[in-house]
Every structure is written in C-alpha cells, then in structure tokens.
C-alpha cells in the first residue's frame, strides 16, 4: 500500500503541533542541537497586502520518483515497499550529501555526531501498524492528512475535474 502525506495550507496556522509531535515520536533532543523532521513557517510577503501571509508545515515529501533515492550511491535511501515512504538505512550512509544535493526541498540533514543522514521516515512502522504518522495524528485542523493510494487518486481526480469545471465556466 502506498500512502501520501498531504498538506492543505488553507487550514494551517503554523502552530507547530505537528513539529512537536514529531519530536515526541522521535525523541528529538533540541537542547543538544537536534532538530525534528518537520518544521513550520509563517511567511509574510513584505510587499504584500496588510497581513497577507502563508503558513507552512514542511517535511520530506516522500516523492514517488524520489531524486534523493536516485542520487544515493550506496543504496542507503530507498522506497519502503509496504508504505512507499522514503527511508534511510543509516548503516549504509557514507555522509556524501548527494541526497541533499538532489532534493529540491532541502530535506536531508546530517548528524553532527556521525555525519550520517537524518530524515523523516514517514512513520512507516506506525502506518504498517494501522496508525497515522505522528505529525498527521497531531494536527487538529486537518491541515495534514494521510491517505492511501485509492483515496489519493480520487482526490487528484476531483481536483482535476474542479479545475476543468472552473475553466469551462469561465470561458463559457
């Protein structure tokens, strides 16, 4: 089963509940410089209208055709077969940063200790056990959701149909 973690910016407020849930799930020690795998941002366009801003929650996109996986020379990064999440087998990492160069979102980071890759694993073990990823489970506003392949296709279709309808209505 392939899963998708979706972000809906119109529901987000950058409260950081997702980021903290990730820290709790992964025992992130921020006091010693560690960071969680998800971060939130409040982006205000200084040239925009009064108060115009965007709230973002950012983590690994778990791309289907993941450039980081393609760029990894050692097979450390791979697509986890049961969930489709992009995961790291850290014992294989040589700290070459190829994945970070390949990732368009700047997601992979490297441990200050062993120099090896650190990234979100999509909580694939939780998913395989029927639980939601920690960040999704924590979002009270529905800004983060996790759907399976069938639901994802349905949403994609609805999205495409709505866009088409809007275009038809506008031109018609």
């Amino acid at each position: 089963m392939r899963y998708y973690i979706l972000f809906h910016p119109e529901k987000c407020c950058a409260c950081g509940a997702c980021a903290v849930a990730c820290m709790d799930q992964n025992d992130v020690d921020v006091q010693h410089g560690e960071k969680g795998y998800r971060a939130v941002y409040e982006y205000e366009d200084a040239g925009g209208a009064m108060g115009e801003c965007t709230y973002l929650s950012i983590s690994c996109r778990h791309c289907a055709d993941a450039p980081c996986v393609a760029g990894c020379p050692t097979g450390c990064l791979s697509k986890e077969p049961s969930t489709g999440m992009t995961v790291a087998e850290r014992s294989r990492c040589i700290g070459c940063h190829s994945c970070a160069m390949a990732c368009p979102f700047g997601i992979p980071r490297f441990s200050a200790g062993d120099g090896k890759v650190l990234k979100c694993d999509g909580c694939f073990v939780r998913l395989a056990c029927g639980l939601q990823p920690a960040c999704v489970r924590a979002c009270a506003f529905g800004a983060l959701t996790c759907v399976d392949e069938a639901e994802f296709r349905r949403l994609e279709e609805n999205h495409a149909i709505s866009a088409m309808l809007r275009a038809v209505n506008q031109t018609g």
Binding site: C13, G16, V20, M23, V28, D29, V30, Q31, K35, V40
Partner: peptide
C-alpha cells in the same frame, strides 16, 4: 502564542524551540 501559556512552557525545550 502556540508554544506557551503565560510562563508555563518557556523553559520546555521543544516548546521554546518553536
């Protein structure tokens, strides 16, 4: 603000990191 109420979580590292 999301990360604290009054003085309560200012010294909790996860909350403070936000």
């Amino acid at each position: 603000v999301p990360n604290t109420i009054h003085s309560r979580l200012h010294q909790v590292p996860w909350a403070r990191s936000l």
